[in-house]
């Protein structure tokens, strides 16, 4: 963000605008400056608040816990950001998470029986994980296909796949958890690498790559364009369908990655894993400043949004607030964030 402002200032020097124009941008700039950082301010506020309320909050162990807990939501939320930026929504991520975890766990533990040949295919950690991720890709593709080729509203299409995929999980696991998945697999969720928890590495990688792709690639630009004004984008030669389709595939893959983390961390694939996770991911994206109508938002914002939710969850537990009140608090923060965004818009 600071890079951007620097550039803006440089441009002021390069082409001096008129006085009136300068004044106009100045006053607008200040407000936008605040609006830009409002979520960061909320995050810092929460840090200070919980630091005061609980002496266990600012311990190294707890900070790693926050990050590790946030990593799952962050993975999903990065994918969700792509979808929302392109003007869509993906409610099926929680189910994808559960399904990918269940597929990986069962392949890992029991292999895959090819009845026709009477053989059982065994899978290693890498093989099983890759297939889990491919499952996410496939469901994402299905979402995108339904939405772009049959013009079904994203909300309805992904509500449908959310339900159907949850059903597949039940069929696949027969309703029972699949547990004891082995040391190697468990490192994904519980291991440490270079003094940092592995899930944090994964989430960090996802965030950095997600951010670079969104900022620097043609595809990223198309995502903003399609979400901002689909007709104008199409009239500029952008293939809106493909662009939207890909965002759902990204979302599916990242939800599956989150599924691997959750399954590994618990050493168990639970049939109801990921239930309601879509709400936290949408919340992180929206708190991070993305507009649900598309075209506006950043991965950095989503990162802060996810951290706010993570800190809130953690802090409220540490300070002994009842889980019911935690939900109330989270709900109101989401609404407050959107109101703040709207008010920022109104001022412009």
């Amino acid at each position: 963000m600071s890079k951007n402002t620097e550039r803006e200032i440089n441009n002021h020097v390069a082409e001096p605008p008129t006085v009136a124009e300068q004044e106009q941008t100045k006053s607008r700039f200040n407000l936008r400056y605040l609006a830009k950082y409002q979520s960061l301010i909320i995050l810092l506020g929460l840090f200070i608040l919980f630091g005061f309320l609980s002496n266990r909050f600012f311990t190294v162990g707890n900070l790693w816990t926050i990050l590790r807990q946030t990593s799952v939501n962050l993975c999903i939320a990065v994918g969700m950001t792509y979808v929302i930026l392109a003007g869509g929504i993906d409610l099926s991520v929680g189910s994808i998470l559960g399904f990918a975890g269940a597929v990986t766990a069962r392949l890992l533990k029991y292999g895959f029986t090819l009845a026709a040949f009477g053989v059982v295919l065994q899978f290693g950690v890498v093989g099983a994980s890759v297939i889990g991720i491919l499952v996410g890709l496939a469901v994402g593709f299905l979402n995108g296909f339904i939405i772009t080729f049959f013009n079904v509203p994203a909300f309805v299409a992904t509500l449908g796949t959310m339900t159907a995929v949850r059903g597949f999980i039940m069929l696949w696991t027969k309703g029972y958890p699949i547990t004891k998945l082995g040391e190697t697999f468990n490192t994904i969720g519980s291991g440490w690498f270079l003094g940092i928890p592995v899930p944090v590495w994964i989430a960090a990688l996802v965030t950095v790559i997600g951010s670079i792709f969104l900022r620097s690639t043609r595809f990223g630009r198309y995502v903003y364009a399609v979400g901002g004004n689909e007709k104008a984008a199409v009239l500029s030669g952008v293939n809106a369908r493909t662009t939207k389709l890909i965002t759902y595939m990204i979302s599916g893959v990242l939800a599956a990655v989150a599924g691997l983390i959750v399954t590994s961390r618990l050493d168990s694939a639970q049939p109801n894993a990921g239930l309601m996770y879509e709400l936290d991911a949408i919340a992180a994206t929206v708190i991070g400043g993305a507009s649900l109508s598309g075209g506006k938002g950043t991965i950095e914002g989503t990162l802060i949004g996810a951290l706010i939710i993570g800190v809130l969850n953690n802090g409220l537990v540490l300070t002994g607030v009842s889980p019911f009140w935690q939900q109330v608090a989270k709900g109101f923060i989401i609404i407050a964030a959107v109101i703040a965004e709207r008010m920022g818009k109104g001022r412009e």
């Binding site: 903003y224 364009a225 901002g228 004004n229 104008a232």
Partner: peptide
């Protein structure tokens, strides 16, 4: 409506 992405 069709020429610009206004918020870009």
């Amino acid at each position: 409506l069709s020429g610009l992405i206004l918020q870009m």
